[in-house]
C-alpha cells in the first residue's frame, strides 16, 4: 500500500516517478533534479526534470494529500479538469499534461509543466526587484480575474453543485463544525455575516483562492496562477473580497488590494476589464467572510498536524495563528481595522 510516509522518502518517490514517466514518454528518458517544494494546503508539489537527449523538461507533480472525505478542496480529477478548461481559455496557468492513474502507484494527482519565477508574497511586496511592479501585478490581477469570470462553469461538471458554490457561509460553518474546536470569535463572525449577508446575484466561475502567494511572477509581471483546488462558482465579489482580505497584505496593511495597491485602483481596473461594476459594500462583506474562512483553514491545518495526516512545523504554527486571524476579524467588524 502506498502511504504518505512512502512519499516523504525521496528515493522511493524518485523511482516511482521514474516508472510513471517512462510509462508515458518511453524508456529512453530519465528523471533528474527531483525536489519537494512547499507542502501546501491540499497538494504535495514535487518538481523534477524529464531528460531525453540534451533537452531537459521541468515538470511538476501535484499529489493530493488530504483524505477526500474531510477535505474542502476539489478532488484532483476536478482540479485537473479546471486546469484544462482555464488553460484552453487563455488563463495563464501551468500547462496540464496528464493525470495519474492507479498503475502509477502515486495516489491521486496530476502533472503540469513547471514555470520559473517568484512566489513568496513578502518578496513580491517588499523586495526592490518587484517594488515598481506592484501596479502591474494589480492591473494584471484585475484583467485575469475579469477574463476568468466569463468562462462557462458548466465546462467543469459538478462545480456549481459544491456547497461552496450553493451556500458559501454554510460550507464554512460545516467545515468548522468538523473540528469540534470552540472558537467564539468565529461563531460571532458567522452571526455577523448571516445578519448582513448581501444579495449575491449571478454565479460565475471563481478561482476561489486568488491572492498574493498563489501566483508565479517574473520581473515582467504575472506568469501563471497556481492552486486551483478551491475553484467553485459564486459572486465575483467573493473573489474581489478574498483578494483584498487583510490576511493577504503580508505586513503592508495599507495596500488593501493584495499588498499591491489600494482598493479603488483595483476595483476600477476590474470594472474597466470586465465592464461590470464592483459592489463596494458587498466586496467588503466578502473580505470579512475571507478572514473568517482563513481562520477556519488554519484550524484545519492544525488538525491535519495533530492527527498526523500532514505533520510539519508550519501546520503546527497554523493552530496558534488562528487567534491572530480572529483578532483581525473582530477588529475589522468593529471597524478599527480596515
Amino acid at each position: 500500500m502506498v502511504t504518505m510516509q512512502n512519499y516523504d522518502n525521496i528515493e522511493y518517490l524518485s523511482e516511482t516517478i521514474r516508472v510513471c514517466i517512462k510509462r508515458r514518454f518511453g524508456d529512453d528518458c530519465e528523471i533528474a533534479n527531483i525536489a519537494l517544494a512547499t507542502l501546501g494546503g491540499s497538494n504535495r508539489t514535487v518538481l523534477f526534470n524529464v531528460v531525453r537527449g540534451s533537452y531537459p523538461l521541468r515538470l511538476v507533480l501535484r499529489q493530493e494529500t488530504v483524505p477526500s472525505e474531510y477535505s474542502p478542496f476539489l478532488p484532483s480529477d476536478m482540479q485537473y479538469r479546471v486546469l484544462e478548461v482555464v488553460y484552453e481559455h487563455g488563463i495563464p496557468v501551468p500547462r496540464p499534461l496528464f493525470e495519474l492513474e492507479a498503475a502509477d502507484n502515486l495516489g491521486q494527482g496530476y502533472v503540469v509543466t513547471a514555470v520559473p519565477g517568484e512566489t513568496l508574497p513578502k518578496r513580491l511586496i517588499n523586495s526592490a526587484e518587484y517594488v515598481t511592479m506592484r501596479a502591474r501585478f494589480l492591473q494584471q490581477s484585475a484583467e485575469i480575474l475579469a477574463k476568468l469570470h466569463t468562462i462557462d462553469h458548466v465546462l467543469v461538471p459538478g462545480l456549481s453543485a459544491l456547497q461552496e458554490s450553493s451556500d458559501p457561509l454554510g460550507a464554512q460553518i460545516a467545515l468548522y463544525d468538523r473540528y469540534g474546536e470552540p472558537h467564539p470569535a468565529i461563531e460571532f463572525a458567522f452571526r455577523y455575516l448571516a445578519k448582513y449577508e448581501p444579495e449575491h446575484g449571478a454565479k460565475n466561475f471563481l478561482h476561489g483562492d486568488f491572492r498574493n502567494g498563489n501566483m508565479i511572477v517574473g520581473t515582467e509581471g504575472i506568469r501563471v496562477l497556481l492552486d486551483w483546488e478551491c475553484a467553485h462558482t459564486g459572486s465575483v465579489m467573493e473573489e474581489i473580497g478574498w483578494f483584498c482580505a487583510r490576511s493577504w497584505r503580508f505586513g503592508r496593511v495599507d495596500l488593501a488590494a493584495g499588498g499591491f495597491g489600494d482598493r479603488e485602483t483595483f476595483y476600477r481596473a476590474y470594472e474597466k476589464a470586465s465592464g461590470n461594476l464592483v459592489d463596494r459594500e458587498s466586496s467588503r462583506w466578502w473580505e470579512i467572510f475571507g478572514v473568517m474562512r482563513w481562520a477556519i483553514y488554519n484550524i484545519m491545518q492544525s488538525h491535519g498536524h495533530l492527527s498526523r495526516e500532514r505533520r510539519s512545523p508550519a501546520f503546527a504554527a497554523c493552530g496558534r495563528n488562528t487567534g491572530i486571524i480572529e483578532y483581525d476579524l473582530l477588529k475589522i467588524i468593529a471597524k478599527e481595522f480596515d
Binding site: 467564539p184 470569535a185 460571532f188 452571526r191 455577523y192 496558534r320 491572530i324 483578532y327 473582530l330 468593529a334
Partner: peptide, 24 residues
C-alpha cells in the same frame, strides 16, 4: 452583540499575547 464584540476582542487578545504580542 456590541458588548460581546468587546469581550471577545479581549479574549482573543489574550491568545495573541502568547502567539504574537507585537501584533496587538
Amino acid at each position: 452583540l456590541d458588548r460581546l464584540l468587546i469581550l471577545l476582542t479581549s479574549h482573543v487578545s489574550k491568545k495573541v499575547r502568547v502567539s504574537n504580542p507585537d501584533y496587538l
